[in-house]
Every structure is written in C-alpha cells, then in structure tokens.
Simulated scan of single mutants.
Amino acid sequence: MTAGASSPTDPGATPTAARSLAPDLARGGMLLLIALANVHIYIFGHPIGLRGYPTALDGVDQVVALLQMTLVDGRAYPLFGLLFGYGIGQLARRRSAVGMPAPAVTKLVRRRGAWMIVIGMAHGVLLWPGDIIGCYGLLAVLMAGMLVRGTDRALLVTAMIGVAFVTLVFAASALPMPDSQAFLPSMAIESPAAALAVRAVEWLGVGFVFQPFGVFGAVALGAWAARRRLLDEPERHRPLLVRVAVLGLAAAVLLGLPMALMTAQLWTAPPLGMMLLAGSLHALGGYAGGIGYAAAFGLLAIRLARRGGPGLVTHALQACGQRSLSCYLAQSVAFVALLPAWTLGLGEDAHLWQTALVAVGTWLVILLVAAASDRAGYRGPAEILLRRLTYGPRRAPQHA
C-alpha cells in the first residue's frame, strides 16, 4: 500500500461534477472578502490605527472603512473556517460511505493538513505573512480526530468555546496601536532579503500561531453543518438558511458598527470600556457574519437550481471556488507585485479606496481566469499539487 492510498477503499479526490454547488459558490465569493480584508494591510508610509487601517481617513476612505468593518473585516476568515470544516466533513462522509475506517480518514486529514502547513509556510515567508493556509493545516492536524470521529456535542461545544474565546480575547483589538507606519513592518522594507527575513517572523507569529485561535470554532461548526448536509442539500434546509442569513448578516453589521465608527474616525476618543466592548462585539459579529454569508450562498444555490443551473457570472464564481487555493495564492502574487516597498511600492501613502479597487480588480481578473480554465478543463495548479501530495500520483488525476 502506498503512502497516498491509506485504504484499499479510498476513492481519492472528489470529481468536479460531483461537487456541491453551494460550498463552491461560497468559496468563490469568500475570496473577494479575503482580498478586501487583506489588501489594506499592504499600506505603509503613514500612521496605522485599528485593525491595520490608516488613522487619517476622510471622505470616501471613511465610507470604505465603514463598509469593510461591518461586512468584511473579521467576517471573511470565519467563513473560510466554516467552509474548511465543511469540506473535511464532506471528505469524512464520502470515505465512510465506501467503508473506509475512521482512523484511516483521520490519518488522511492529518496528512493533508501537514502539506497545507508546508504550502502555507512557503506562501507566508515568500509573499504574504498573514497566510491562512498553514493556519488551517495546523487545525486539520490538531483537530482531525474530533472533526472525523467526534460527537455532534463535541463539535458544538468546541464551536461555542471558539466564539467565547474570540469575544473575550479580541476585545483588545479595539485598543490603539503603538505608533507605526505599517501594520506589518515587512511591507515598508525596500530590501527584498531583509523583507523576507522579517516576513518569516511575521508569518510564524501572526499567520501560523495566532490565527488558529480565532477560527477553530468556525472549523468545528463547519464539520457539524456538513454532517447535516446544510449546503449539500440546501433546498431541504431553506427555512433555516433564510433565518441564519438574515440574522447573521444583520448581526454582523450591528455588532461591527461601534468599532467601524472608531476606525473611520467618526467616533473619536471613546472611553476605554466602550473600546473593549466594541472589540468584543466586532469579533462576535464576525462569526455571525461568516455563518450568515454561508447561508446566503446556500440560498443562492437554491435559486440557481430552480433556474436550471448557474449562469455566466455564477458559473465563474463556482469555477473560482473549485480553484480556491490557487485563486487565493494568485491574489497574493498580484498584491505583492504592486504594493510593498520591496516591489513597486504602490502601497506607500495609498488611500483606502484605492487599495479596495485593487482588491476588487484583482478578484475580477482571477474570476475570469478561473472561468476560462474551467472551460478549457484545467484544474488549479495548487489544487493539483495538494492532491498529489495528499493522495499520491495515482489519485491526483481525478479532477477534484
């Protein structure tokens, strides 16, 4: 038996035609949220305030800050975590259905997670120290047993612990930052070699060690949702998805508003207690928003199914979601080529609205490339690599 075939009944990667529509739509939309959440971190050259946003905002930049803080900031990564956990749940269910024993599935999830750590480390050190791939790889390694074999109660308790943790700990995210000209110091370093050395430290501290604490609850909740096939069979769960989408997104906006007003400098000099409360509410709203977005994409899948399938735009979104790892890495390549001091340096003194346009434009280009790749029958290169590393060369060609 080879390393890539942990069981004779291992079916390998899921064929593209067998993938559920709603999770892929959600992954494609999630990438826009992640692009917007990340791109302002590349700004350098003027004082940086809450959540990495510049302190001197006015006019259009204030509007962008308000929208991003209520709809994007802290909402994209819980959605990512939910979908990651959901994917592990799908993997476990499919292999269980063909008789693959749970210990072998757990081993497979850990092997996949270990390779994600390697890919995430390369991404974090070479390009973007806020990498999330290694973070989720670490969670896969540490949580594999519970995600595959844990009880529903264990998953829900872990999710509640995760929500409680971020609500308490992220209260400090609303406190003023030390004087700095860049949220990540590597962005303002002109020497590529020196910037690389600093990025290695940033990735280890921020991307790999710190970020898992903020999203492990979402991963557990995603695995729980997968067992109920909430996004695989959204029509069956439509009333629940409607309630979750409406309440989740409304909570994201309302709970994120206090900190959004602070970030946009529309609420200046709030008392310390209100700052801490705003940080907690913002983090809690992030989980609510991530869940709400997932439910909204489930409802979109229902609508598309009733219309006979995805149209031109939603098909591109689906194609992007099927190549989410490659598309995520492509965003970093584009941002790094344009914004840090060690490349073109366009992030120096950039306005928030300008970087937001860069994020949207980058996502649109990647969306078009993903759609063209799908029509040509090409998979994402990062997906091919991860599947070969996880399943071995005999499993990789199954167009997962």
Rank of each mutant, 00 (worst) to 15 (best):
W203I: 07
S373A: 15
F80N: 05
A400N: 09
L249V: 07
I133K: 01
F213P: 10
A188P: 05
L142D: 06
G87H: 07
R236A: 14
L352R: 04
L386N: 06
W115V: 03
I117W: 01
A65M: 12
K107N: 10
G87R: 04
C327Q: 12
R94A: 09
F208Q: 08
P54Y: 05
A264F: 05
Y378K: 13
F208D: 03
R112H: 06
G392E: 03
M259T: 06
P310E: 11
L91N: 08
G81C: 08
V105Y: 06
A144N: 03
G145E: 11
I161F: 15
F170K: 13
R388V: 13
P239I: 05
A330F: 12
L71Q: 10
M259P: 00
L352Y: 02
V358C: 09
D152A: 14
A164P: 02
T158I: 03
T16Y: 12
R110C: 12
E233W: 08
L155E: 06
G279P: 02
L33Q: 09
R112E: 05
L71T: 11
Q322V: 00
G137S: 04
H46C: 10
G120P: 04
T106I: 15
H399A: 15
L32P: 04
E383G: 02
I132A: 13
R303Y: 01
L386P: 02
G74Q: 11
S20I: 01
G89P: 05
Q265I: 00
L386W: 10
H399N: 15
A5F: 03
T9I: 00
V336M: 07
W342N: 13
V365R: 11
A76C: 03
G12Q: 07
R395N: 13
M69Q: 14
G347S: 10
A18I: 00
V109K: 13
L281Y: 00
F210Q: 14
A172S: 13
P178Y: 02
T151M: 12
A288E: 00
A5I: 09
S326N: 06
A278T: 06
G273Y: 04
L168P: 03
Y328S: 10
Y328E: 12
F208T: 09
G273K: 09
F297T: 00
C327S: 15
H46G: 15
G74M: 12
A294I: 01
H351I: 00
V209A: 14
L254P: 09
D73C: 11
D232T: 08
H123T: 00
H351D: 15
T390C: 04
L357E: 07
R228F: 05
A195S: 08
V333A: 14
W353H: 15
A334W: 11
A220W: 02
A283H: 05
D232L: 04
P176K: 04
A174F: 01
F183A: 15
A305S: 14
L284H: 01
R27K: 11
V109C: 07
A250Y: 02
A102K: 12
R94Y: 01
L352I: 07
L299R: 01
I119R: 02
L339H: 08
G29Y: 06
A122P: 00
V98M: 07
R149T: 04
V148C: 07
G222N: 05
